[in-house]
């Protein structure tokens, strides 16, 4: 999901700063930086009401929901086009929900599309509709990144 809301812009400022620092150290090879992060959803009870909060993944067990975030920024002074971010799903997790904003692959990244339009072969050799647990890759496509443009792409996954 391409988040351009102000809250995201505040955090992306940090990413930009980090990207510049990194680019400086690596002698300015890449104009675009990607910064991955992961958090776990924890349910806490506050004033008697259950509430879901994001926490560092210090303790994670099967069934937990994780939020994977990839922050991107165009640190250069030229625009970037055809910006495609591909994220192979780690094998120990499955996609939690089809949240939109991205295309998925159920064949190891060979082809991408909307989950509802994809099929996979079952044991009997017939095709069936693809399920969340069949997703192997996620792909976001942004046509254009202006200089200094930044944002965050995220997906939820459940530990298998």
């Amino acid at each position: 999901m391409n988040r351009n809301i102000p809250a995201r812009l505040i955090s992306s400022a940090a990413a930009v700063a980090l990207g510049i620092a990194f680019a400086g150290a690596a002698s300015a090879a890449e104009p675009v930086s990607l910064k991955g992060d992961v958090q776990v959803e924890k349910v806490v009870t506050e004033n008697g009401a259950a509430k879901t909060v994001l926490a560092p993944p210090t303790t994670v067990v099967p069934g937990d929901r994780l939020l994977f975030t990839t922050r991107y920024s165009n640190d250069g002074d030229k625009p970037v086009d055809n910006f495609v971010v591909t994220n192979p799903l780690p094998a120990p997790v499955r996609l939690a929900a089809d949240e939109g904003g991205y295309e998925v692959s159920v064949d190891g990244g060979k082809t991408f599309g909307k989950l509802a339009a994809l099929t996979v072969a079952d044991a009997a050799g017939t095709r069936r509709a693809a399920q969340l647990e069949d997703v192997t890759h996620i792909r976001w496509t942004l046509a254009h990144l202006a200089p200094r443009a930044a944002g965050a792409l995220e997906y939820h996954a459940v530990v298998r």
Binding site: E30, P31, V32, S33, L34, K35, G36, D37, V38, V40, P57, T59, V60, V61, P62, L66, F68, T70, Y72, G76, K78, P79, V80, D81, N82, F83, V84, V85, T86, N87, P88, P90, P92, L145, L153, V159
Partner: peptide
């Protein structure tokens, strides 16, 4: 988890990888 990006600047096509985030299952 590692994400990678491909993009074009001018006429050049480039790719970049994110850092890898690792979570150990308890």
């Amino acid at each position: 988890n590692t994400a990678s990006a491909s993009f074009t600047t001018g006429t050049a096509t480039r790719t970049v990888d994110s850092n890898t985030v690792t979570v150990k299952v308890d």
